[in-house]
Every structure is written in structure tokens, then in C-alpha cells.
């Protein structure tokens, strides 16, 4: 049995890494919004889902005209980034900004609004897809060139689409790092995250920066949606919920508000969850297994919040009176 465990390890790790890429990309959206507004944007899981659905539409309508599956995947990701980014900005403008302007001090109000937006979007997409195509369970089309298997050392194999996912994730993370650290916009985002009031005194328009933050986070979520579709194929309007909660867990794991924490947390959570799901099955000799992988992820969240609520990379911060 232990031979099987060791033999499986590299491929389980690789699978965990892929899942981790998706989590990391979604987690960035949660953590950036949390950074500037201190709000858990529950609607972000639906921004991700809309990205996946937008990708499907690209495959439906543009797919027949482009023969190159790699170019098609990139087009789908770009469109999804645009749609999801725009949606995130619209959500901020229509639902969150009115609350901010009213200056309510009740912390529950924006959270409940976010849940409302999330529920609304699930059924809204379902309605639109239902009217448009007559059904709302969708599949990303399989392409033999994307599914092609390559040999790696240690007996691992990797599919072309997995390589694309890893490369795109790496590129986007590096790009985000550059944006946050080296550009004026990044500086402004960091300033707003640190202290919104003071930043606005320094000539930064917080509303504009908040909108940009939603745009960037939403675009990353949209790309994650297409990656999710490429990897796991099946998409429906309710597909966002579980990855959404997991990605939030990842954001907390890394230290919420910290974008490097979100990247790290996503990768760690994806790996641990896949390892946990697989090895539970072996350790209990098949009695319980993969169906408990969600439980593993939530247990991590609870334990983490108990013993290290600031996350892996976060710093503790006292309550301000």
C-alpha cells in the first residue's frame, strides 16, 4: 500500500498544483477587495462563474472560426477577463457604492448585500442561459490537442491544457506583482488599502481606485473561470460556490489583504485538499475518501482561524477604537 502512496505522490501533487492555480487566481479577487474595503465580497464566486460561462460562449460562437485551440483558449480568457472585470465593477457601482456613500456603520449591511448579489447572479445567469440556449448545464468542448499527454520525469504525465493553466497563472501573478509594486495605480491601491481616508487626502480618488481594484480582481476571477472550465469541463450557474469558499479559505490561509498570501494560500490549499482527499481513501482502506475533501478544506480554515488568524504571511492588527 505504501508503494502505491509514493508512486501516486507526484501526480497527486501536480493535480493539487493545478487546482491551487485556480484557487490562487480567485483568492486574489477576494483579498484585493478585502484589502481596500474590508469586505468579504461573496459575489466574487459568481464573478468567477460568469467568467467560466463567458468562456463557454466564446467556444460556442468563436470556436468554429478558429482552428488553433491555444489561440482560442487565450481569446476565451481575454473575453472572460473583460466580462468578469466589467461585472465586478458594475456590482461595486450598483450595490456597494450606495451603501458606502450612506456611511452606514453596520458591518452586516454590505455583507448581506454581497450575499444577495451572489444569489441573484446565480439565477440570473441561469435564466439568461436558459432563454438563450434552452439549458444551463454546459461543457467545455474537448480538443485532442489540448488533451495531449506529455511525459515528465518521475513517471508524471501532464496534459497540454494543464501546461497552459500553469503558464497563464504564473504570467498573471507576475504581472499583478509588477502592477502592485511598480506602477502608480499599484501604489494608489496600496495607499487606499492602508488608510482610505488619508489616501483621499493625498489626492487619490478612492472611488476610482476601488473600481480599478474590483476590475483587476474580477478579471483574474474571469480567467480563473476559463481555467476551471478547461480543467474540469462541466460548468453550470451554481459552479462558483464551492471554489469560491475554498478560494476565500486560501486568502485567509495566506493572510487576508495580502496578495502574495493569496497566491501562496491558493497553491497550499489546492495541494493539501487533493492530498487529503486521496490519502484519506488509502488510510481508511476505502471507508471514507474523496467526498470528504470539502470537509478537509473547511477544517483547515477553522483550525487556522483558531491558531493563526492572521494567516501564513499576515500580520496581527489590533482593533481600532
Amino acid at each position: 500500500m505504501s508503494d502505491a502512496l509514493i508512486e501516486l505522490l507526484p501526480s497527486v501533487l501536480l493535480e493539487g498544483l493545478l487546482l491551487g492555480c485556480v484557487y490562487a487566481m480567485i483568492a486574489l479577487g477576494y483579498t484585493m477587495v478585502y484589502g481596500v474595503l474590508g469586505l468579504i465580497n461573496f459575489a466574487h464566486s459568481e464573478v468567477f462563474m460568469v467568467g467560466a460561462v463567458a468562456g463557454i460562449e466564446v467556444y460556442r460562437y468563436v470556436g468554429p472560426h478558429i482552428d488553433n485551440p491555444y489561440a482560442l483558449a487565450v481569446v476565451a480568457m481575454l473575453v472572460a477577463a473583460g466580462v468578469s472585470g466589467g461585472l465586478a465593477v458594475a456590482i461595486e457601482r450598483l450595490a456597494y457604492r450606495p451603501l458606502r456613500k450612506r456611511g452606514s456603520t453596520n458591518r452586516l449591511v454590505p455583507l448581506i448585500t454581497a450575499i444577495g448579489v451572489s444569489f441573484f447572479l446565480q439565477d440570473f445567469v441561469r435564466l439568461i442561459e436558459g432563454l438563450w440556449h434552452g439549458e444551463f448545464y454546459m461543457n467545455y468542448p474537448a480538443d485532442a490537442r489540448m488533451e495531449a499527454v506529455h511525459e515528465l520525469p518521475l513517471g508524471m504525465t501532464i496534459q497540454t491544457k494543464s501546461i497552459i493553466v500553469i503558464v497563464v497563472t504564473a504570467a498573471m501573478l507576475l504581472g499583478l506583482d509588477h502592477l502592485v509594486r511598480r506602477t502608480r495605480l499599484g501604489k494608489a491601491i496600496r495607499a487606499v488599502a492602508q488608510d482610505l481616508q488619508t489616501a483621499s487626502l493625498m489626492g487619490i480618488d478612492p472611488d476610482r481606485i476601488i473600481a480599478r481594484t474590483f476590475l483587476i480582481g474580477g478579471a483574474l476571477g474571469g480567467v480563473a473561470g476559463v481555467m476551471f472550465g478547461l480543467l474540469y469541463s462541466q460548468i453550470n450557474p451554481f459552479v462558483g460556490f464551492v471554489p469560491g469558499v475554498k478560494a476565500f479559505t486560501a486568502a485567509v490561509l495566506g493572510g487576508i489583504g495580502n496578495i502574495y498570501g493569496a497566491m501562496l494560500g491558493g497553491l497550499v490549499l489546492g495541494t493539501v485538499e487533493t492530498l487529503g482527499g486521496t490519502y484519506l481513501f488509502f488510510l481508511t482502506e476505502g471507508a471514507i475518501g474523496n467526498e470528504y475533501k470539502d470537509v478537509v478544506a473547511f477544517l483547515i480554515l477553522v483550525l487556522l482561524l483558531l491558531f493563526r488568524p492572521q494567516g501564513l504571511l499576515g500580520r496581527t492588527q489590533g482593533d481600532k477604537v
Binding site: 450595490a95 448585500t113 446565480q122
Partner: peptide, 8 residues
């Protein structure tokens, strides 16, 4: 959708 709208 309806509960979402109510909440918002």
C-alpha cells in the same frame, strides 16, 4: 433571484 433582490 428573488431572495437576492429582496436582500439587495
Amino acid at each position: 433571484m428573488i431572495f437576492g433582490i429582496i436582500l439587495i
